[in-house]
Design a protein around this nucleic acid. Sequence first.
DNA 1: AACCCCGGTCGACAATGTCGAACACTGTTG
DNA 2: CAACAGTGTTCGACATTGTCGACCGGGGTT
Lengths: 255, 255
Amino acid sequence: MPGQVQSIARAAAILRLLASSSGRLGIGEIARSLDLPKGTAHGIVRTLQDVGFVEQDKTSGKYQLGAALLHLGTSYLDVNELRSRSINWADPLAARSGEAVRIGTLLDGKVLVVHHVFRPDDTLQTLDVGSLLPPHATALGKVLLAYDVGAANAVMQGEPEPYTRRTLVTVRTLTRALTGIRDNGWGAEIEEMTLGEAGIAAPIRGYGGLVVGAIGLSGPIDRVCDGQGHPRPALVAYVRDAARAVSRDLGAARW
Amino acid sequence: MPGQVQSIARAAAILRLLASSSGRLGIGEIARSLDLPKGTAHGIVRTLQDVGFVEQDKTSGKYQLGAALLHLGTSYLDVNELRSRSINWADPLAARSGEAVRIGTLLDGKVLVVHHVFRPDDTLQTLDVGSLLPPHATALGKVLLAYDVGAANAVMQGEPEPYTRRTLVTVRTLTRALTGIRDNGWGAEIEEMTLGEAGIAAPIRGYGGLVVGAIGLSGPIDRVCDGQGHPRPALVAYVRDAARAVSRDLGAARW
DNA sequence: AACCCCGGTCGACAATGTCGAACACTGTTG
DNA sequence: CAACAGTGTTCGACATTGTCGACCGGGGTT
């Protein structure tokens, strides 16, 4: 594969940097973080500003992400086939299960939420479409990792952050969990991200049977799990049905 | 102002092109649309693909926007001060008025929705954060135009699209409407975008008194307007109060 | 099998972006 | 109050870099 266009790669790095370090950054900080000459960084940032990808706070002179990115991001949602196909099935799943439903895909080793249906009863929830979830501590994430060995290895190389006492952080436990998911065709997460919360997810397959995303629900542990602390079979069936339906819509041969 | 970085400006143009022509585009179409050599376009697109800003459909070989943009877009929302400051006031406004509330800002002559609160009663609404609304046919848009002569002129240069019979499309009517908004400090829209729908909006001022956005509500005409076909004074007061509150939060001196 | 479209590649050329020093400005510090 | 340490910004020379158009290789269609 031939080389990249240097300036564009650098511009993308600046945008990612601005996104990660939420808040405003000065040109000096940008240049230092990416090891670029100040003048070079300034030229790139100025261009990004002209096209609306970054904005400058007049008083402090610092830079932040621009409004044009918001529109591009939502335009992506309009095009994304995984999202558009799954919307029809996410609502029924939320209604049947009574829990919040999310659909995610892997982006750069993390889980990108492309669709989110609120829990039917409760309205005070924050929409987290577009946010990134940790792959090792969510049902969606573990399902996605189970079918992407590259990403799974990358996660295990890095040190998975322990959110709770039950978060899987060792290579052994994670590997076993992923194997279990592959065997069963679905996965769960019980208080591995947040105490009192649990989730169930299943893989969505696209054309050719490749796993392109995951759909899952999450909610209070006493509603998602039965007395023995296992995910309720009925909910698991709902999730798997929804995943199969979306996969069929996406053209996965015999799921 | 010194020149732009050519390749970055071109890359941005490609992204905008992909966003506007919703759907997938081939490398040839991209090159033709932007009048670039095929090889050049391919190099840029390949780099954009490497950084996750565009994705390629394996089967057709065509390109579309990538997932990384979604995350960048929502990261923008986290940073955007207009949004974060207005969230606290948008919910009460929706509750008091009983209507859907939106907050917008000007992007490239159109209204970019940065926040959206659903109408309290109804749940079947589509979230349109990140979408672009026509400036001349919405209350938010006309308010924003009233305080941005440049954008207003640009809109009047182009031919404003008539959505309904009541849409303002001539320079004379539009100018008069904007003048009225400046005099009153608020604006309305009655069936200019959709039949049976109306809206009320007021400007949000940032540091220094500059108008940086607008907040408004919209709903069925018989709820938003009184018997004479004028916006209900109580609702207007609610909207203006909310706009003032947000402006104060943003540091606008004595609004 | 000839054709025409597609996306992708390659290499020569020079236009392009990069780079570091210098600038103007602000707020702080001695 | 002046020197300083920051900031964002500009400039011009250099050569790295990206551009360009011809050339591949493959699918369809004619």
